[in-house]
Amino acid sequence: MATTTPTALRDIQLDEEGRLVHFLTTEGLSREQLTAILDRAEAFAGVGERAVKKVPLLRGRTVVNLFFEPSTRTRTTFEVAASRLSADILNLNIEHSATRKGESLLDTLHTLEAMQCDLFVVRHANSGAAHFIARHVSPGVHVINAGDGRHAHPTQAMLDMYTIRRHKGRFEGLKVAIVGDILHSRVARSEIHALKTLGVAELRLVGPKTLLPPGIETLGVELYHDLRRGLEGVDVVMMLRLQHERIQGPMLPGAGEYFRTYGLTRSALEAAAPDAVVMHPGPINRGVEIDSSVADGPQSAILRQVTHGIAVRMAVMAEVMGASPREAS
């Protein structure tokens, strides 16, 4: 008798015709699907520069920002993106309210559904939370993952892809290094899947052994423990934020030593290609993972990433809501 097939990873973010109905992870999406999001973001990028910064694409629809973890910038960019699409927006910071009173996540969800919301933008401290919510919402309700534990942060990854495409015009042939705390990073995991699918030539993960999870090499990446070697000849440097609690925990000796070994300084950046672009999902820790002269330097794309975040999140929202691009004009 055959071995059991557990409830396998059915890609619940796609409907039967393979269309994106939730955006939970960059894993498992095709190059065409990822490119379609980037193209759409390109079209939306102009909206922010107009005097009237709105398109009526999601008029009459309700978007709920469901944040179980504090966040300012991600929540704000989703809010701006939804507002530019003319949606109604509801911000819920659940970390202060319902679940604290013992209400289960599922009950919170059903209560909100009863208010006839169309889209949940979810951030949660536990890996898999967005999948869990997507599996339990009513048909016709969409879910966008705004970060779940260490698992995925797909819209951040897509805005990083957008930024790379803007700067480099392509993915083929690029050498990319992701530097820092890979173990705890949902951004890194989403970037890895997207970059592999979009066809970069080489993807390196750079960090100390304590911050590189065993088994990550199975994703087709190369591991480096030495920053300069890891940066040698790369076209894109993607820095990761080092959370404060990591510095105090047993995984690292301290911020000073981390900066000396893995901090991106101008001298370290010299190992990369001369036109290498430097990115960071923010908020940056100056003098911990990156030096100010690099963060504010000519090769930095960090602030542009934030701007791109709005167009990319508009694109993702429109995509999962099945809003046709014709209505956008």
């Binding site: 890996s127 999870p213 088994g215 994703l219």
Partner: peptide, 15 residues
């Protein structure tokens, strides 16, 4: 388990 699947799903592993 601390291994390939846990690393990909971002779930804390038991080595």
């Amino acid at each position: 388990h601390e291994g390939a699947v846990g690393a990909r799903l971002g779930l804390p592993g038991v080595p």
